[in-house]
Design a protein around this nucleic acid. Structure first.
Lengths: 233, 233
DNA sequence: ATAATAGTGTCTCTTAGACAATATTTC
DNA sequence: GAAATATTGTCTAAGAGACACTATTAT
């Protein structure tokens, strides 16, 4: 637009917030912190912080992720979710946050006390039923919905699993995220016969009751065809 | 995060950019402007501008849309696409842009000369093959890919059509966006039998050769089940 | 009548979902 | 052996894609 000058307006802060999901005890869980200072002191919130000068948006999200989990970005799936910038969403000033969705295997508990007040995993359903600081409830809901949708047509469920995993582990991811039970036999056939979904990883597990299961890795496909559709009609 | 202060960092500008798509002459077209001033003077760009104080992000996108097309937001589908904020994407200062995807029926040519230098519709394929200012090439590519994907599992193709339309018009949308030919008979069956995709609008068209076609409106569904899948295996 | 476009029906193949049957382990 | 889990197979119904056929208009 001719004549527009980005410097002509009052200052805006840009932050990166994180919806970090995992599966714990066969349930979808989210990493939340309890805010140690105003605004919304004492309330639950998503981890996040300012985007620093010279840092990309994804870089800021990856840095937050590393600070919270101690893990390098390579281990965890990280994608941009959406941006939220309603005036008044932060009482201090105009803040636009770029939310990122991160999907991780069941991680060791996040490092406590370094720079974040009381970060912990909590069942996603519990958090959705509670209040959160800022508009984080909406951001979390959007993140969960994104994850649900992406399980249908991408091999992203594997992001919730360790590098090698069994079909049953993968099925439990679907069941936890969708909140529905799936037939183990039909799921097995679907997962193993959808091209590119899985790559065999040879050996088999043992150590629990029942027949040992084969191991797989995430396959080369980026889109599943045909998709794994949630029940519809 | 304790101790973080959004005011502690250098200023950032937030803008809203628009990927406005339509179908013209059975081809996917995008609204582009030619920049009248530096940076990237003379280059093609997407329409956009600063988010004003007190304005929501979606509100800024709707305002840009109205400025470019003269249309109220109600006529046009508008959804957030993604945000782009790499340092250096704008040489003047740190600018984070929130891109919105807008889908519209074939509109009268945008108002010329009011506040935008030379806005025009251009075939999406031509623009993708050309250079654009900033990172707008990437934004456009992401917008087109979003539109392609959404045609599969939402009734969004209707957003490219006037309020009432025929099955053939709808099919031409799919063909233009996907760049593939679809069987008219199978598409007809699919469109009319997918629950909630279309609502009959009674009367029939005429005025051209061939049997008059029935008219439909966009149906109540927000997700198509089963989806209209692009050919895969 | 002919061409053109709209709409229906039919056939085949693939896939989803229900569920029987078999395989391989631990207890 | 019994129980638990993994894996394969079978049956049925629904949907996709190919394509014949009918319907209704303009010229």
């Amino acid at each position: 637009m001719p004549g527009y000058d980005p410097r002509a307006y009052p200052p805006v802060a840009v932050t990166a917030d994180l919806v970090l999901l995992t599966i714990r005890d066969d349930r979808l869980a989210v990493l939340v912190i309890r805010r140690g200072e105003p605004p919304f002191q004492g309330q639950l919130a998503l981890p996040g912080g300012s985007v620093r000068p010279g840092e990309t948006l994804a870089g800021a999200a990856a840095r937050e992720l590393a600070e919270e989990t101690g893990l390098a970005a390579g281990t965890v799936h990280l994608e941009q979710l959406a941006s939220y910038g309603d005036p008044g969403r932060d009482p201090r000033m105009r803040v636009v946050t770029v939310a990122y969705l991160a999907l991780a295997p069941d991680l060791p508990l996040p490092r406590a006390g370094t720079d974040t007040a009381e970060a912990r995993w909590a069942p996603a359903g519990d958090i959705l039923a509670a209040a959160m600081a800022f508009d984080h409830h909406q951001i979390l809901a959007d993140g969960i919905e994104r994850a649900r949708a992406k399980l249908e047509y991408t091999p992203l469920a594997a992001a919730f699993c360790p590098p090698q995993f069994t079909i049953t582990q993968l099925r439990r991811v679907y069941e936890a995220v969708w909140g529905t039970a799936l037939d183990p036999r039909n799921f097995h056939r679907k997962a193993t016969r959808t091209p590119g979904f899985l790559s065999p990883a040879g050996s088999a597990t043992a150590g629990h009751r029942g027949r040992p299961a084969r191991l797989y890795r995430k396959g080369p496909a980026t889109l599943l065809y045909p998709p794994v559709l949630r029940a519809g009609s």
